[in-house]
Amino acid sequence: MKKLIITGLFIAVAIAVFLSPLASSHPDGLEKVAEDKNFLQAAEEKEIIKAPVPDYSMPGIKNETAAGSVAGLVGTIIVFCIAYGTGLFLKKKAPSKVKRQTSK
């Protein structure tokens, strides 16, 4: 189990840190359609919140590649923790449910 977590997380982190700098910077499908069909401006200045790491670039790091890699690393770890945590939480709640079902 430990080996699975380490290997899996290592692969995800490696992608986020080492491959993300190679990503295409062209607009994505929806953004491109919005540009072509003239509705991109509908989103201008409409952001409800100011996210701490906008556009996958860690603020305070001058080197663009490094800023992207650090952002990717941080995001991957946070997502792992929340998804893993959700699983642990649901599992913790589960045994009582199983009991209830069997006692019926």
């Binding site: 062209h26 991957t76 929340i82 699983g87």
Partner: peptide, 21 residues
């Protein structure tokens, strides 16, 4: 399944960063 939930989510997040032309 629990560790796989974490790994799968982490992988998807990382892979979503890789825009291909």
């Amino acid at each position: 399944q629990i560790p796989m939930m974490g790994i799968t989510a982490a992988f998807i997040f990382a892979a979503q960063m890789l825009n291909f032309p």
